[in-house]
Simulated assay, not measured.
Amino acid sequence: MDNEKYRIEKDTLGEVKIPASALWGPQTERSRQNFKIGQRMPFEIIESLLQIKKAAAVVNEKNGEISKEKSNLIVEVIDQLLVGKYQDDFPLVVYQTGSGTQTNMNVNEVIVHLAAEINPKVLLQANDDVNHSQSSNDTFPTAMAIAAYDAVKKLLSVLEHLENSLNDKALEFKNIVKIGRTHLQDATPITFGQEISGWSSQIKHNFDYLQNNKKTLLELPIGGTAVGTGLNTVKDFDRQMVEQLSVQKGISYLVAPNKFQGLAAHSAINFETYSEQQDNLFLFGPIVV
C-alpha cells in the first residue's frame, strides 16, 4: 500500500489524495477516510442509484436539460456498472454524514471518471450532469424503496416455497404423537403434524403481511429534491422519472403522493424489515409449543 500511486483532485474544501486507479473522486475519498467502521453499503443500493441516474439522464435529455451526447454516455457507462464489474469502486460504508450524500456522490463520481475513460471528448460533471435535477435527499430514499421492493420479492418466493414444504410435512407427520412443551416443560400431547402446521401458519401470516404492504414500496419520492418541494426540477419531472424507472425495471412504480413523507419517513421499509426479522426468529430461534 505504501508504494501505491495517487492522484490529486480538488473540491471546495481543498486538495484530496486519491488512489490513482480509483474511479471515485474527492467526496468519496473524504468519506472513505472519515468513516472506517461498519459494513460496506449493499450493492443493491448502488444498483438502485445507478438505475435512478440512468433514468435521470434519459429524462433530462428529453427535457433539454442535458445534451443527447452526455445522456447517451451516462447510459452507456451505467450499463457497464450494472454488470457489477466495478464493485470495488463503491467502497463506502453505511455510516456517513447526511442522507446518503456520500454514496450518492460516489455513484456520480464513478460515472464521471469511467465516462472519461470511455469517451474523454465528452466532459461530464458529477453534479451538473449526472446529478442534474436530483438531491441525495430524494435519490437515496428512492433507492432504498427500489432495493427493498426487490428484496421483498425474493423473500416472498422463498417463503412460499418454505410454506408449501411445511404443509407437506404437516400432512406427512399428522399421526405422530409427541409431548407438547410450554415454558420448556412437558405439557400435553400434540401431533408433530399439528406442531408443524403452526410453523407453516407463521410463515403464511408473515407472507400475507409482506404481500399486502410491499405495494407501499412502489411509491417513489424521486423529484422531491432537497426537502420535498421539487425545487430545481422541470414540471412533471417526478412523473417522467417514475415512468422511466418503471420501463427500466419492468415494475409499475408510483409517484409518491406526498414527497415530504416520502423523504422523511420509511414506514414501509421498517415494517418489511420487522416482518423479515420475525421470519428469521422463526427460522433460527427456539420453538416452544
Rank of each mutant, 00 (worst) to 15 (best):
H205F: 08
L184M: 07
Q194T: 05
N206A: 06
F192H: 06
T191W: 07
K174I: 08
H205I: 14
D168W: 09
A170N: 13
Q185E: 01
T191E: 04
S197T: 12
Q185Y: 07
E195M: 02
F192V: 03
I203S: 00
K204W: 09
I190K: 02
E195K: 04
I196M: 11
S197P: 10
L171A: 10
K178R: 14
T182Q: 05
G193N: 05
H205G: 03
I179T: 08
N206I: 04
G193W: 12
E195C: 06
K174P: 13
K204L: 15
F192D: 08
E195H: 04
T188C: 10
I190Y: 03
W199H: 02
E195L: 07
H183D: 00
T182D: 03
I190C: 03
T188Q: 03
H205Y: 11
A170C: 11
I176T: 09
N206F: 11
A187D: 00
A187W: 03
T188W: 05
K178H: 15
I176Y: 13
K174Q: 12
S201K: 10
W199R: 00
S200V: 15
T182M: 09
D168T: 07
S201P: 13
E172D: 05
I190W: 01
G198V: 13
F173Q: 02
Q185W: 11
S197E: 12
P189Q: 00
F173V: 01
G198W: 09
H183G: 00
G193Q: 12
G198S: 11
H183E: 00
V177M: 14
Q202I: 14
L171K: 11
N206E: 04
Q202F: 14
S197L: 09
H183C: 01
H205T: 00
E172T: 05
V177I: 14
S200L: 08
L184A: 06
T188P: 06
Q185G: 04
V177W: 15
A187C: 04
D168E: 10
N206V: 08
K169A: 10
Q194E: 11
Q202V: 08
R181D: 11
I176D: 14
I179K: 08
F192Q: 05
A187P: 03
S201A: 14
K204I: 11
R181H: 07
T182L: 08
K178T: 12
H205K: 01
Q194S: 13
K204N: 06
L184G: 13
D168S: 10
Q185P: 14
N175P: 01
N206P: 12
S197A: 12
T188Y: 08
Q202Y: 09
Q194N: 09
S201G: 11
K174G: 07
I179H: 05
H205W: 06
I190F: 02
G198P: 15
I203A: 01
N175T: 03
I196P: 03
K174M: 15
D186H: 09
K174W: 10
G193H: 12
I203L: 00
D186Q: 02
R181S: 06
K169I: 12
K178G: 10
E172S: 03
